[in-house]
Write a protein that binds this DNA or RNA. Structure first.
Lengths: 235, 235
DNA sequence: GCACGCAACTTGTACGTACATGTTATATTT
DNA sequence: AAATATAACATGTACGTACAAGTTGCGTGC
């Protein structure tokens, strides 16, 4: 008995949510139903559901059940749901460079583990726009590890993180960031269509994922004059 | 029986940590010890300790016990431990305005609930420096509610949040923020000793606390040219 | 038709037991 | 003296039971 029972139940239900078998607003099977189905006790079923609540997949409602909710996303500033909900308006995404194999970025603000540097590197660059106005220039790097078919496929609903979750069962579990207000360099000001030298917000992020071998590195340049970056977190 | 048993145990132990009865690196009483002391079952003791782990006060070590750790602090960018550890250098704090009763800030980026607007408002302004160089200009507002002796007393170890936790048992449980890169206005550039118009990072934060009636509002201006702002979070 | 009560569900709390597994210090053996 | 076994104690998992309390729909009675 290697993987705890509660963990097996938890993983199964989580996967079913990721695959859309249970959708947003659905209720999971009740504790007693899980007991019957899998021959476990309520203690074990509760533990599985408690963990899922802790991970933000469900909310438990006294007297009603376990409601599937949109996962708490704000691990750092780059929300998983994005941007689109952060600004609350119509968002358009333009690929300046589609996912492909590139060099690892020199002097990246965060350290890349040796085993990742040995792997090939996937990179893509996107421009996020609100009503035709470019707001964020976004660069992403990640090691080419355990992501068959990542290059060449479209993202699910245009979302990188949603694709990682649903196609590869990879969840974001943490992040480190650094923030700087800088004068826009020519290349950046051109992309964001602002005056060179006007203030932009640089955000460098190192995401940790449920695969301990896999980190994701992002470098963002934001025009916050029109759209401030929002972030929230609750225990 | 209003407050759950496990909650009473949890609150008691948490208070004892805040009061320094258990210190960083200490082990709390074991589950069985708690059972003996309070006449409860291990299920209840475990639930209390599990919650405390979830809240970041302790780490549970298999075979060893429940270790008191430094509370996970990074709820948002303004760390509770600060700044001092964020920049990892000698930090000096200068009060430009000591805590006193002032007006509520007009057009604050976050909404202030009516019951807080009715109360009087405490405000203070600090300048955080690293090696004589000013890095962050910090303004804080909060309603004058349940904080006897707040005005006029020194902060514990110079820390606002530590004072809230230890003197008033108020914990930060969440935050919302907005970030903007802006050209420094004269008043700000003067305080931060930079050129007027050069980029500064504005961070506006609304903290939620364990007292649902009490929010804390902060407005920061950061010179990120020399010291970037760091932030991290892990599940 | 409407209010009320109740049954049948849900989750929340708390009890008790058992065994697995990690940690450490002590006693025993080599 | 060093290696090994063991006992005592820690947390982790999982079983089973009981009752409290929130939610909902159905049926009864007014």
């Amino acid at each position: 008995m290697e993987i705890p029972l509660y963990r097996q139940i938890q993983d199964m239900l989580t996967r079913q949510i990721q695959q859309g078998i249970y959708r947003l607003g659905d209720y999971l099977p009740s504790e007693n139903e899980l007991c019957r189905r899998f021959g476990i006790t309520r203690t074990t079923a509760r533990k599985a559901l408690d963990e899922m609540q802790r991970n933000g997949f469900i909310e438990r409602r006294h007297g009603k059940g376990s409601l599937v909710v949109e996962r708490r996303k704000s691990l750092g500033l780059l929300n998983v749901k994005g941007f689109s909900e952060a600004v609350g308006q119509q968002v358009e995404t333009i690929f300046l460079h589609r996912p492909g194999k590139r060099e690892w970025l020199k002097n990246f603000p965060f350290t890349v583990p040796g085993n990742e540097l040995c792997m090939e590197c996937i990179h893509f660059e996107r421009l996020r726009c609100v009503g035709k106005k470019p707001i964020i220039l976004e660069n992403n790097w990640l090691p080419a590890i355990g992501l068959p078919g990542f290059i060449g496929s479209e993202f699910i609903d245009g979302s990188f993180f949603k694709t990682l979750s649903q196609r590869y069962q990879i969840e974001i579990i943490g992040s480190e960031q650094e923030l700087r207000a800088l004068p826009a360099q020519p290349k950046i000001s051109e992309a964001l269509m602002i005056i060179t030298g006007s203030p932009v917000l640089e955000i460098s992020i190192r995401f940790s994922t449920s695969n301990p071998e896999l980190h994701i590195y992002s470098l963002l340049y934001c025009n916050t004059a029109t759209n401030p970056i929002g972030n929230s977190y609750f225990l």
